[in-house]
Design a binder for these strands. Structure first.
Lengths: 345, 345
DNA sequence: AGATTCTCCTAAACCGGTTCAGACCACGGG
DNA sequence: CCCGTGGTCTGAACCGGTTTAGGAGAATCT
């Protein structure tokens, strides 16, 4: 196999200095059209591809972005959000010659370490901040590290300033989806509705629960049935057990993700309950499986693929131009299926 | 924020040349113990971290490994194999200062391009080869690119030579799992057993089907019920529909992954069948959800986490030492749950 | 015509490591 | 006393790009 052509090869072949080749390839002014064309032709002939590592060293940027996922592998496997999100990211990176560096860590401690390593090694030019938390420690951490980032959704505006968010936010508003799901249940006649949410420290869990509570309250209904979980199917199942054991048990349960809702269907069946007659269930994220379980699962559809793509585009814009505007995607909406129905007379 | 310390800073501070610092840090001979200690101390004091890009440029290696996944995002999301596998990979990379570069592509065409980009940009020192195919085109491609790799499972030995596999294989034998699952069904009295497999071009699909067929044949049972799918829940569902519509329909179905099996449970319920009385079902990979669907799913357990870890270790050994032995992990075994039962009298 | 400006280009420094040839020194042997 | 020899260290080249200072020559201005 021939050695890869370097910028020197191109320069020699084109009869110019390598500095000029660099100028021509990055189309910067100061190169005559004629010479530029000749250089580009030679580069094409030699199948010249600039060396990423040389360029990284010289420009101090890595032409890659990072994603750190802090979730237990088990949850990760069950939850289709990240794979789709990553596929979307990839779609945006592909055309830009950028790469995605992925880090999967079990807990928060390793999470901080992962960001620090990414920064220390200058592996990436920017990162995605998913699963935002309250007073998210990653934001000051990243600022200290001088690492550009894009947040999925708006972080808490801790200060009084509304515009003190240090990073552009790419948001997919999930509250309309939650509101629609809850309203759907209310319209079906449900009065005792429970909410099984993800970890409270995650912003979206509390935000969705706020939407849940608001909607119930507006309808004059009780809002006391909220159970926090870690997003695993296991905890979704035990939360369901708990709720069904209550004296004044709910007739409908809203779940924070599909795996938990599917586990709940299992629990209900196990108890001989009929769905949706005895219990209505809704999921979140509308994974592929939602259409195929029995009864098919009413779920709130977000679009992780699109979200990933938009987030990646925004991050690239930020790292290359130094600025990127917030992006708002189409809000989540409920997809009604067979797991929700009128409350039994 | 202070600028990061470079090797020059360490050299100056320790009063030696930067070449010697390099020697000391990579503990190579030719540095006196005394000097070495002094250099290491200074390095620690300055919190010196070698620059990955500088080192990459100089050594022509990137200290990262690559994973290219060619699956439709939807399937990816439903199938918990890759997230767990990646988590395992990560666990092995963490301690070695290596990073994982991930590429998710939709189809084979983009897949080849992804490998080529990884190689052309020298982004990674080696890659994982998952979902091996018949006459896998990626093997000659990677050889042409001079890219080290580790295969998950043994590739087809196309030639007569048994040891012509160009890459070390990290294998988790799935046939014992399949055999056990099928035997389990036979023991329960099933005589018409179907197999819903993944894409035939994938080696593991045909290998598992061979195990399936062999086991049935050994018991003198018919082996005609095999349906090929793309691993999606959707095709799992339609395969089930098809099988149940047959005049001489199976009493048990073995599925190639859990999402398809779960979709099959949905279809069966939809038709008013009772599980496992009217139909027994087994899955594959034993995802978290398997325990929580109703009835809980008998599945074949592999260990993607462990697999990922072993594969990563092997790949690192290969890229650093130039050689790595094959690794054989604990074979897959069947986990019996409630979705399989005696055939109805 | 001479000074100024502009365009196009070259040479060299630089990014931060690795590696190699050879300098320097102490030591033991002849 | 001189000469290898071995251990320790320096200096410089090198990896392959980017960037800056400045030079040559043509065009424009005065």
């Amino acid at each position: 196999m021939k050695r890869k052509a370097t910028i020197n090869d191109v320069a020699r072949e084109a009869g110019v200095s390598k500095g000029l080749v660099s100028f021509a390839l990055n189309d910067r002014p100061g190169v005559s059209t004629e010479t530029r064309d000749r250089i580009l032709t030679v580069a094409r002939e030699l199948d010249y591809q600039p060396s990423v590592s040389a360029r990284s060293l010289s420009t101090r940027s890595s032409y890659a972005v990072g994603l750190v996922i802090a979730r237990d592998p088990d949850i990760l496997g069950a939850d289709p959000f990240f794979p789709s999100f990553i596929a979307g990211v990839e779609r945006a990176l592909l055309t830009e010659g950028q790469a995605l560096v992925l880090s999967v860590v079990g807990d928060d401690e390793h999470e901080a370490a992962a960001y620090q390593r990414l920064a220390a090694d200058a592996r990436v030019d920017g990162v995605f901040l998913t699963d935002l938390r309250h007073d998210d420690p990653r934001i000051p951490l990243l600022q200290r590290l001088g690492m550009p980032a894009v947040t999925l959704g708006h972080p808490e505006t801790s200060g009084s300033e509304p515009a003190d968010a240090p990073y552009p936010a790419v948001s997919l508003d999930d509250t309309p989806g939650v509101v629609a799901a809850v309203q759907h249940l209310i319209d079906l006649g449900h009065r005792r509705i429970a909410h099984v949410i993800g970890p409270r420290r995650m912003l979206h869990a509390t935000r969705r629960n706020a939407a849940f509570v608001d909607t119930l309250r507006a309808a004059g209904l009780p809002t006391d049935l909220v159970v926090e979980t870690d997003f695993t199917a296991a905890q979704g199942a035990s939360a369901t057990e708990h709720l069904l054991d209550l004296a004044d048990r709910p007739t409908a349960i809203v779940f924070g993700n599909d795996p938990m809702a599917i586990a709940a269907i299992g629990v209900a069946h196990e108890r001989g309950l009929r769905l949706p007659d005895d219990l209505s269930i809704t999921g979140f994220d509308d994974s592929e499986l939602a259409r195929f379980v029995y009864p098919s699962l009413t779920s709130v559809r977000t679009d992780p693929l699109l979200w990933g793509e938009a987030a990646a585009r925004t991050l690239l814009r930020l790292t290359t131009t130094g600025h990127a505007d917030d992006v708002d995607l189409e809000p989540a909406r409920v997809i009604t299926r067979a797991s929700t129905g009128p409350v039994r007379a």
